Simulated assay, not measured.
Amino acid sequence: MSGARGRDGAANGRVGHTAPGRDGHRTPRRDGAAHGRDGAAHGQDGAAHGRDGAAYGQGGTAHGQGGAVHGQGGYGVPGREAGAPDLWVVVPAYNEAASLPGTLAALAAQQDTAFALVVVDNASTDATAEVVREFARSAPFPVELVPEPEPGAGTAADTGFRYAVRAGARLLLRTDADCLPARDWMAVARAEFGRGAELLCGRSVPRPDERPTFAEARLLPALVRLSALYGRYRAAHRGPRFRAPYVLCHGHNLGITAALYVRCGGAPRERLEEGSEDVTLLNRAREHSGRVVRVEHLVVRSSLRRLRSWGARRTLLWYWDRRYRPVDTEEVHVR
């Protein structure tokens, strides 16, 4: 699988503030030791992520105000260098050049900016990578740009999470490239982690700048909650192997400790149309921890573009175990 993600770790070049290059911009350096040459250090199953560290890059320092960030070798959760951020945000992105600036601006406006950001470019063909590089020049936190050529939201999220863990992250948050986290998103998450939670499942509300109708703002979220209640009583989500109750969990608004992520196996590496990677991650986490919480005041404003493109019925069927799938898989990515 390492070949699928490229054999040249330099492709995972980091963006932002490193050593100045000839053109006056900052350029990344290679340092294979920074991320290890043994892919097993990226999780419990080294084979799943390549046998050499190239799958996650050989790039050198992290960027922005956070300074250098290097993971340490070994299995499981690595150590963290002094002064390095303990909390990382992961944003998977596929052809999101139009929407990503809003997400990045919302992250930059956080009340708590003591974190690092990794954007996973999932084989975009637009200017997604350029948007990230431009943002990194003035970002108030370290910014990483990591390529993932293998398609899939779960795949890209897993790459980002494991990259962050390898760099020393202890706490992880995820949102999507068309979402706007509330200004206190980071602060709320950090407080909940401080209370001992290991998996945070936040609340999703429509983006106000998309001018949601009454049905979009009220009725659809109510239906989503009803479906989550149904999910709680499904046989697949119940049983003695689970240590915490099933809760509504959105992939674009969740947090997890690095220790639990590694322990439970992380997000499934699958395409968007193949399944709900957020539900799979939730259930994997529930098998390993009883500290799974629904946090209503952990808020992300999400886009209505799928609902408006497909309509309510198809959208609900999509989220209900992918009972609706477009004939053309490219239509899965609503832009």
Rank of each mutant, 00 (worst) to 15 (best):
E192R: 15
L107R: 03
E198F: 13
P326W: 05
P149Q: 05
E81W: 00
E216K: 14
H250V: 04
E273V: 08
H35Y: 05
V90A: 07
G79W: 04
G83E: 07
T213W: 12
T18V: 04
A285H: 08
A84E: 01
A197V: 12
T128Y: 01
G168N: 05
T61F: 01
L260F: 02
V224G: 06
R162L: 00
A215R: 15
D8V: 14
E277F: 07
A82G: 06
A84Y: 06
Q111L: 06
D126R: 13
N283E: 11
A127Q: 14
L229G: 15
V77T: 11
Q72L: 05
R335S: 10
L145V: 12
L180I: 06
Y163V: 14
G9D: 05
G67D: 00
A82L: 07
T125F: 03
Q111G: 14
D45M: 11
A259T: 15
G59N: 08
D321W: 00
R166I: 07
A236W: 00
R308S: 10
R51Y: 01
A109K: 03
T61C: 02
R308C: 03
H70R: 12
A222G: 14
T125N: 08
A228P: 12
D112Q: 14
A40N: 10
E274K: 06
A114C: 07
R291Y: 01
H252S: 12
V131K: 13
R286C: 03
A164Q: 11
G275H: 03
G16H: 01
Y233K: 02
Q58A: 09
V279Q: 04
R269D: 00
R22M: 05
V119T: 09
T213A: 10
H25T: 09
Q111V: 11
A105P: 08
A19K: 13
G266I: 03
A116Q: 02
R207D: 06
S2N: 14
A197F: 07
R80M: 06
E216V: 11
E210T: 14
R170G: 07
T27G: 01
P140C: 04
E144V: 14
R314H: 15
R225V: 11
C179R: 13
E96P: 01
R238G: 11
R183G: 02
S204A: 14
T213M: 10
R7V: 06
V327R: 15
V224R: 11
A197Y: 09
R203C: 02
R5Y: 02
P147T: 13
A109R: 05
E331H: 12
L282P: 01
L117C: 10
R190M: 00
H333Q: 10
A228R: 13
R211K: 13
G255N: 08
R37L: 11
R133S: 15
